[in-house]
Structures are given as structure tokens and as C-alpha cells.
Design a protein around this nucleic acid. Sequence first.
DNA 1: AGAGATAGATAGCAACACTTTCTACTATCG
DNA 2: CGATAGTAGAAAGTGTTGCTATCTATCTCT
Lengths: 224, 224
Amino acid sequence: MRIAELSRRTGVPVPTIKYYLREGLLPAGELTSPNQARYGETHLHRLRLVRALVEVGGLSIAAVRGVLGALEDPERSLHRAMGTVETAIVGAGAASDDEVAHEQARRFVDRQGWGYRPDSHAFRSLVAVLASARDIGLDSFPGQLDGYARVCGKLAEQDLDYVMTAATKDAAMEIVAVGTVLGDAALAAVRRLARRELSAVRARAEREEARPGEGGQDCAEPGD
Amino acid sequence: MRIAELSRRTGVPVPTIKYYLREGLLPAGELTSPNQARYGETHLHRLRLVRALVEVGGLSIAAVRGVLGALEDPERSLHRAMGTVETAIVGAGAASDDEVAHEQARRFVDRQGWGYRPDSHAFRSLVAVLASARDIGLDSFPGQLDGYARVCGKLAEQDLDYVMTAATKDAAMEIVAVGTVLGDAALAAVRRLARRELSAVRARAEREEARPGEGGQDCAEPGD
DNA sequence: AGAGATAGATAGCAACACTTTCTACTATCG
DNA sequence: CGATAGTAGAAAGTGTTGCTATCTATCTCT
């Protein structure tokens, strides 16, 4: 197909596709003459992938390039690919040299029986979060982490099981990448839905308690 | 204190503080003369809050303004404040008019027994994620949501319980805001740690299976 | 009195993700 | 065959964001 069809079928403007080609997010089409190229289904799929990472995942162009690079890495261990993808997604992140926070984080991973990897992005961003929380005066925040860990253990199992459903290794790699990004977004959305629901339930319960016997009418809730 | 001390105690450059003052993220200091002002502990605290939202939460200046606005809203219901904060944090987000995805999302919230609020940001971003997942061909992705929901219910309880530990209503409001943002960041970090751990464990188990009786030596893992 | 800080205003800057414009072709429809 | 529309590739332009830099007219401290 030609670039116009690629554009039509994805809703991405032609100049933007050209931009992605320039940036190496999309491989060049097959040239049929010096100024004509043909694109195939792989281009279509790749373009949708890029858009998902950019629009839903909020990744920068550089991060997308990193993720795509991880997908094409000839060294094909899923475990390593996951690390590479997460590195690409998280990026540099804010480093923190707060020793107290560092120690809190270390004790946390110890409690979980996890490996202590002080140089991993995940660990460092955890340190940064803890440092910030302490700066602001959220003293009991570190105690929240254990609850998070319990829940994240289950999520991790589910995520990895899902990756294993992939038919081919290529598909698995893509699920790792896309599932991480879309999974983050989905988790965030579901978390907000769950929280709002519970918050509404509790707010209602409180009102009931204040004025009992008023009937269980659904109350107005913040519309956002 | 003067602006230089504010800068020294937070590590934020003076011009940046001035910028935040201009942008209304920080209230003006108390003028002692036309070109001298004094700042207090509240300024210090607010500045640290702003930095946490910007650096850890990755919020834009506009989003920070929105969150701070929610904190100062005279209408002081926690439930509503949570909605406002989330609106400020999530921002516009990618809308999607994909009807199939919309229907999937609707059935999902129904299954959970949650309210169907098609105009909430959370619902709409869920629709966008589902639409993207389908575009890319992740057919079984919607099935992942129920696992997420189970886990998010627990998180929501924990989060709300945490908010209730606040001494004053002001403090509770701040925990809502900061806890949402820092909580998201912490959850993301913990999730990555948990996933990496499990991935390493499984990769090791796989190797063991392939070459049994090789000893349980810790293997090299991707350094990121 | 003199060095250095400060408020407030304006302008500048680098990064980012496109978007526009251009030239020199090519495909295709009537 | 010619008119019209589409295309590759290069270069320059655009709007936004989050600061930085510079400036002036003060003020504070020693």
C-alpha cells in the first residue's frame, strides 16, 4: 500500500508518518522507484504499535525507539527483554541520594525476600518516592509499601502468565512491551475506578450513619 | 526567611521559585517593602509539595496548579476532592470513540458491580486502552482487567484507610493529593520490582529444569 | 558607603513532537 | 497525451513547556 492508505487506516497524518520514518520508528518502505515506496502489513502493525505507545502509554519518541529496539534485540531472553523495555519506558527518572530513604527501600525489598538491586531504575525511583514522602512529612508512607507488594506479587504472576500465552517468541516480546505500557495505563484506570467506587460507598455509608433511616437512594457524586 | 534560604533548603534554584510564584503555584511572600518579601514554613512546605508533584509524579505545571486548587477548595468533601485531584492529574487524556472497546469497558464495570460512568476520565482512558489493545491484536487483554480489579479493590481500601489516619481535614486533603501521585509512582516502582523478581525466579526455574542438578547458584540478571 | 541580595518584568532558550513547504519526480484517470 | 493528484526526501517552521538570563530599581547588611 502507499503512504496515504497507511495514513487512512491508522488515522495518523502523512507528515507524521514521514516523521516516524525519519526518526527510525518505522522501517522504510520498499522503494519501487526513487520516489515511490510500498508499505506492507508489518508497517501498518508497527505504526499502530507506535501510536499505542505514544498515545496511551505517553512515551516519548526516544522511549518508543528504545522499546522497539528491545523488541528487535537478537538476544532473545524474555527476562532480559523485560528489563530493557522497562529501562526504555522509565527513562532516567529522578535520582535521589537520600540515605534514609535508601535504607527504607532496602529494608522493604529485604522484607519481601527480593533481591537488593540498588542500581535498578525501579529501586531508585522507589528511593526517590520515599525521599519525597519524607520531605513532605508523610511519615507512615513507607508502611504502605508492604500492601503494594502483596498486590504486585499477584499482578506479576498474572502478567507473566499472560506473556506465556503468546504463540511465538516474537509475539511474547511484543506482549512484554505493549503489555507493560498498556498494562500500566489499564491498571491506573482500574485503580481510579475502584477507588472512586469505594470512596462513594464510604461517603454514602457515612451519610447514612449521620441520618439513619433515610433510604438507600443513590447519591450524587462528583462528575469529572 | 528570604528567597535564597527557600532555595537553599529545597535545592530549587531562585529563578525557578520566582517562576512558580509567577505561575501561582506558590503564594507571594509577605512584602516588607516594595522589593523585599518574607517567606514562611508554609512556603517551604508548599514548595516541597510542588517539587514532589513535578519530579516524582511527573505532573505538568498546569496539573500541579489544578491539584493545589483542589486542596484549597472550600467545599471540603474528601470524596469530591479525590475526584478533583484525579481530574487534575490525569488531564485530558486520549479520547476514543471505539464502540466495541466502550462496550467491553461497560461490561467490565458491570461485572465488578461498579457504577457505570462513561464520562469519567478513568472510564474513558480504560476505553482508550482497550481500543489500542484491540488495534494491536492483543485479543485476550480485556480478560486481564478482572485480575486488576481484584487487586485494585484492595489497594483502594488501603489507600482510603491511609487517608483516614490524617489528623486534620487539611492533612487528609493533602494525603489524597500527594498520596495519589506518590502512590502511583510507588506502585509502579514496586510493580516493576515484583515483576523482575518473579521473572528472575521463573527464568532460573526454567534453566534448572533444562539442566537439573546444576546447583542453585544465583544467575546473572539484566542490569538496568 | 559599598557589596550583594531582591522583586518584578521581559526576553531568551532548549527540547519536543510534530507541521509546512519545497523540489523533483511518478501514477493514473479521462 | 496531458492534467491532476500523489510521493520521497530534505529543510525549515511552529507551538508548547519549563525553565533561565538579563535588566532595573530598589533594599539590607556591614
